[in-house]
Amino acid sequence: MPLTIPSDALPTRIGTEILNLLLPHHRTTGRAPVPAPAEAFHHQLRRITDFVHEGAPVVFTLPGFPCKSPNPAKVLGHLPDQGERLSLTFLNTLCTEIERIYPPGARVIICSDGHVFGDLIHVPDHHIDAYADDLRIQMAQLGLDRLSVFDLRDILGDLPHDTKRARVHDRYAPALDALRTEVRADDQALALYRGITRFLVEDTSDWTGTRSALQRSCRQRAYGVIQRSRAWGDLIAEHHPHAVRLSIHPQPVGGPKFGIRLLDARDAWTTPWHSAALHRADGTWTLMPRAAAARLGHLIQQDGRPSHFVHN
Rank of each mutant, 00 (worst) to 15 (best):
E97I: 04
R146T: 13
M139K: 11
A166T: 03
L147F: 10
I155N: 00
I110T: 12
P124V: 11
S87I: 11
I98S: 00
G83P: 12
D119E: 14
R180Y: 07
L176K: 03
L88I: 15
R107C: 09
C111T: 14
I98T: 02
D170S: 11
D158F: 02
D113G: 09
A178M: 06
D81Q: 14
L156W: 00
V108C: 05
E99C: 12
L135T: 10
A178G: 09
A130R: 12
H122Q: 15
R85Q: 10
I101Q: 07
R167P: 04
L120C: 08
M139F: 09
R171F: 09
L156E: 00
P80K: 08
L86Y: 11
P103V: 05
L176R: 15
D125T: 13
P174I: 03
A166Q: 12
H122W: 15
V116S: 05
P80N: 14
I98D: 01
D119L: 06
I109K: 06
R100P: 07
L176Q: 07
D162M: 02
I101D: 04
R171L: 13
A140L: 14
L88F: 15
L120V: 05
L91W: 10
H122Y: 08
I101K: 01
D129T: 13
I121P: 06
D113T: 05
D154L: 02
H169Q: 06
M139E: 10
D154H: 06
V168H: 01
Y131K: 05
Y131N: 08
D81R: 11
H127K: 10
E84L: 08
Q138T: 15
D81E: 12
L147T: 06
G118Y: 01
D134Y: 10
S148R: 13
P124Q: 11
P174G: 00
G157R: 00
G114Y: 05
R107L: 06
G157P: 00
L86Q: 14
L147P: 13
L135P: 10
L142W: 09
M139T: 13
T93V: 11
D151M: 04
L147K: 13
P104G: 02
G114P: 12
D81L: 07
T89N: 07
D158Q: 07
Q138E: 14
A178W: 02
R171I: 12
R171V: 14
G105I: 03
L135F: 09
V149S: 10
L176C: 06
T181W: 04
D134S: 12
Y102L: 02
L152R: 00
H122V: 15
P174K: 01
S112M: 14
A175Y: 05
T163Q: 12
A178V: 08
V123I: 15
P124D: 06
P103S: 09
